[in-house]
């Protein structure tokens, strides 16, 4: 306690002052607004020191009760990535045999698809369902040819919502990577890898660990980062004077 007090007195830590209204975006805001998912990478590998610098920011994410329930795996073995991608494609193909809403004239598929949607409505939401079809047809890559893939795992025994904690640590790393001019893409179609016994064994994914998601990382082709328009969402606002408003 004494030390902290001294620090403040001696002014060794400078205080950050909030921006004025209408001031230009600061460096953090710029990175957040410009970050885009990158699906087109150069063949060049990212040097180890940059990857370590990125992983380090993941380590400093907040977590419920400071439990830090994450585990990271860095995969740069191209053969391994290709093999995993092939297996994801195979699994998607299998799935599309039962659930495919887009193909016409197969009423029973449509019926099963609807059932899937009802009982697993996040995974079979129309957007990922459409993406699964693209992956099955190999029109959408799995890790998009990225030279490095970071696997994010969570400790299932952890406090509160470990999946949220892992998500926060992942976004720390993603934003850091973009601030270095690198590209990333969250890839949750890694799910089959976390479920297939073959891969669980090979990668050592076992209790208490569970694969949450992965992040592809590499040097982008072109300059994919840039601002884009996005929809605004209703924000319910309960004001100090007791009144209520909805803003967008």
């Amino acid at each position: 306690m004494n030390e902290v007090k001294e620090d403040l007195e001696q002014g060794t830590k400078s205080k950050i002052i909030p921006p004025e209204s209408g001031a230009p975006f600061n460096a953090v805001e710029e990175v957040i607004y410009r970050r885009r998912s990158v699906r087109y990478y150069q063949d060049k590998q990212v040097p180890d020191y940059l990857i370590r610098r990125i992983l380090e920011t993941g380590r400093f994410a907040p977590s419920s009760g400071n439990t830090q329930p994450w585990k990271f795996m860095v995969i740069q073995n191209q053969e391994l990535i290709k093999e995993m991608s092939r297996d994801v494609v195979k699994m998607m193909r299998l799935l599309m045999k039962f659930a495919d809403y887009i193909e016409k004239g197969t009423w029973w598929k449509e019926w099963i698809s609807k059932l899937f949607q009802r009982f697993s409505n996040n995974m079979f939401h129309p957007v990922p369902a459409a993406a699964m079809k693209l992956i099955a047809e190999e029109k959408l890559g799995v890790w998009h040819g990225a030279p490095t893939v970071i696997f994010l795992l969570m400790d299932r025994r952890s406090a509160g919502d470990p999946m949220v904690d892992v998500g926060i640590s992942g976004q720390n790393m993603v934003l850091t990577a973009h601030s270095f001019g690198l590209g990333t893409c969250w890839v949750s179609f890694c799910k089959p890898i976390g479920m297939m016994p073959k891969w669980k064994k090979r990668l050592g994914i076992k209790f208490p660990y569970k694969l949450v998601t992965t992040v592809a990382l590499g040097y982008p082709r072109g300059v994919p980062d840039g601002q884009v328009p996005r929809e605004t969402q209703a924000i319910d606002w309960y004001e100090e004077d007791g009144s209520f408003k909805v803003i967008y």
Binding site: R36, V228, P229, R230, E231, T232
Partner: peptide, 30 residues
């Protein structure tokens, strides 16, 4: 964002109906 020539503009926004409908959305903006 990626187009080096600024040749692309976003015009219409993705929307789902019924069960998956997006709720409480306003006008898109930068």
């Amino acid at each position: 964002a990626i187009c080096p020539r600024g040749a692309i503009q976003l015009k219409g926004y993705f929307q789902l109906k019924r069960y998956f409908r997006y709720l409480d959305r306003g006008e898109p903006s930068l």
